[in-house]
């Protein structure tokens, strides 16, 4: 079983000739890339170019029509369960339970991830992303920026070796954006970070860039 705390250094992500079609509409065509721990892979392109589709394929949320994605640790291909443990994801499509508080949401996801779901652990996560004062509020009452911060707490709670960020600064104010860039800077020291974006500032963070067409 993958131990995310120790298994970061040898992590490698390989996107091998990935294509995706929805019926007759081809969204991705033969996309190939490789990135490892300590690298940022940027998926850039205009709206509708397939950035979110590709990052979901990397997250194993959807299957490619052709090609494959490999997640490797020290040269060993990871199982589906290991991939789940290896991934932390922030996405506009990611939603939490509105009827539960931020603490209850994070405790639930910590429990299913097999983490210690103590109140101290969850509060420290929320504190890190500036949500401590509103930790007991129902998520349904959160603003879109607060929900985005909560997504980062969700994505990083298990210290994953692969961090997938789809439009990471969406809905955030200046302080939130600075927090995200600081998080990316820390993450790239030891993790493989994948960012799907069309923000020029975020594209410049990439060590490897996949440029998708319209």
């Amino acid at each position: 079983m993958l131990d995310p705390l120790t298994g970061q250094g040898g992590f490698e992500l390989i996107v091998d000739s990935v294509s995706k079609s929805y019926g007759a509409r081809r969204v991705l065509r033969d996309v190939t890339a490789r990135a490892g721990a300590g690298q940022v892979l940027v998926i850039a392109g205009p709206n509708g170019s397939g950035k979110s589709t590709l990052i979901k394929i990397v997250a194993r949320l959807i299957r490619p029509t052709n090609g494959r994605v490999l997640w490797k640790l020290d040269g060993r291909a990871l199982t589906a369960a290991d991939v789940r443990r290896a991934i932390g994801m922030v996405s506009p499509d990611l939603t939490f339970y509105d009827e539960l508080s931020a603490i209850e949401n994070l405790r639930f996801f910590a429990q299913v991830r097999g983490l210690s779901a103590t109140p101290e652990f969850v509060k420290s996560l929320l504190d890190r992303f500036g949500l401590r004062g509103r930790s007991g509020d129902l998520v349904g009452a959160y603003s879109s920026g607060m929900k985005q911060r909560l997504k980062f707490a969700f994505a990083l709670m298990h210290n994953p070796p692969l961090l997938l960020l789809d439009e990471p600064t969406a809905n955030l104010d200046e302080r939130g954006i600075a927090l995200v860039y600081d998080t990316i800077a820390q993450a790239r020291l030891c993790k493989c970070v994948v960012i799907a974006t069309n923000e020029p500032e975020e594209v410049r963070l990439g060590d490897v860039i996949i440029q998708l067409g319209a």
């Binding site: 369960a81 991934i87 994801m89 939490f96 299913v112 991830r113």
Partner: peptide, 12 residues
């Protein structure tokens, strides 16, 4: 409610 995605990411 699109919470299925977070379940897929975390739960067997």
């Amino acid at each position: 409610s699109r919470t299925a995605m977070s379940l897929r990411l975390t739960t067997a």
